[in-house]
């Protein structure tokens, strides 16, 4: 569990996460804006080479950064590359989340981040051919260009492509 705050929402949302002692957070490469000086950063190809290359196809970078508050608690500020809003999602073992390829911001290290090929329908959706699949138990944050709208799907909903 993380203590976090989404600030400057909805136009220029940025994520402020408080890490407890020795707690880690997985972050999209390049998303760190500011942090306490005792937080250490490691670049990782998570899930091995193949998954990392897959992630690169997914529109994310090959590497993910892992930030750890060493010795004492600390604060980390993250902002996505494009202006827009940020959302938090609680992943559970029976409920994975698909994210549009460039939308990933940060996640609990327990979450597995995978890339899924969407096939031809992905090609026509106006998004990338790949989607990110986040599964496991923990917190995840994602961003959008503009404000995301939550839609609960019961039967079938028509979405304009590129939303």
């Amino acid at each position: 569990m993380y203590t976090y705050d989404i600030e400057h929402s909805p136009a220029y949302a940025s994520l402020r996460v408080k890490l407890t002692t020795n707690q880690s957070l997985i972050v999209e490469a390049g998303a760190m804006a500011a942090m306490d000086s005792h937080i250490t950063m490691k670049s990782k190809m998570r899930g091995g080479m193949m998954k990392s290359v897959g992630r690169m196809f997914g529109g994310e970078s090959l590497f993910l950064s892992e930030f750890t508050a060493t010795g004492k608690s600390g604060e980390l500020l993250l902002s996505p590359g494009v202006p827009g809003d940020l959302c938090h999602y609680q992943c559970q073992s029976d409920r994975s989340l698909f994210i549009q390829s460039s939308g990933f911001v940060a996640a609990d290290p327990n979450i597995v981040i995978d890339t899924k090929f969407q096939g031809v329908k992905g090609f026509f959706s106006g998004e990338s051919l790949f989607l990110i699949k986040a599964s496991g138990n923990g917190d995840i944050w994602f961003s959008s260009y503009g404000t995301p709208v939550k839609v609960t799907i019961c039967t079938k909903i028509l979405l304009t492509s590129s939303t």
Binding site: E7, Y12, A29, G30, A33, S43, S65
Partner: peptide
Amino acid sequence: GAIFGGEGLVCRFSGKGKLYCQTHNPSSF
């Protein structure tokens, strides 16, 4: 990691005083 990790270089501030930051980075955008 600094080169390939996407984070590259950072500015390390020291002293006592106020610092003003912007949430977003014009060049990333």
